[in-house]
Amino acid sequence: MKEKRSIYKIISIYALVFLFAFPILLLFIWAFSGRWSWPNLLPQTLSLSGWRYFFNPANGALESLATSVIIGIAVTFITLLISIPAGKAMGLYEFPGKEIIKILILAPIIIPPLAVTMGIHINFMRLGLADKFIGVILVHLIPTLPYSIRIMTHTFEGISGKFEDQARVLGAGPMQRFWHITLPLISPGLFSAGILVFIISFSQYLLTFLIGGGRIITFTMVLFPLVNSGDRMLSSVYSLVFIAAALIFTLLMERVLVNTEQRKDHFYI
């Protein structure tokens, strides 16, 4: 019985690995291929021309990548800054209208962004935020905040306010409690939320396009026409860079936020 189960386990693990790894492997092959025509199973020639194109400053790929990363980091920072107090209020306190606020927080995920973007665009123009860096950052908060507040709400529910109470009776003031107790305890939640937020912001196309008005060029805006035009080699190069950027950000966040001792604890989420 036991052996049988472990066989199923192994099969399903390999199936999953294959499902995730195979497309990436294809991307790799495409990114380095020269001529690859039907019905060959592998490319006939290999070439680095796609990478040369990518690293050529004249094509603006690196610049757009930098723009995306800066926007992503700014969005992540602002979103987390809002989500900590919001998550604490939603997770620990009871107040009238809590259920309604819960639904309102989720509203941006439920309502398609396109439905409201036009209105936002007009207002941003009035406020002088359209076509600007800050405008793009602000509009990215719309799809990111619901996820991040939700994650932080559950994080606070998980740790409860008791550790803060304990720190308080031991003589810790409000700022000390936040730095020494709350922040380390919620860091796994911040990590999960931060990665999600960064990736959502990094993958935004439509919102950036509309609010940025074509002046703020992010990485997705460079990638999209390539995929659209069917240049598989170039879009594979850009996609690989896209994946690498998200991965590097994840690893950096983990380094900063997750304490190695905490990973063994049952509070680790």
């Binding site: 008791k162 550790f163 304990q166 009776v169 031991l170 000390q176 380390p184 001792e261 905490q262 604890d265």
Partner: peptide, 26 residues
């Protein structure tokens, strides 16, 4: 007035020495 809770509530990210010294550090 220091309260010791029923669930002990040791700070999970601090070791025993850091837990004990927490109040003094503050």
């Amino acid at each position: 007035a220091v309260l010791v809770f029923q669930e002990y509530l040791l700070f999970p990210h601090l070791n025993a020495a850091e837990n004990i010294a927490f109040g003094l550090k503050m």
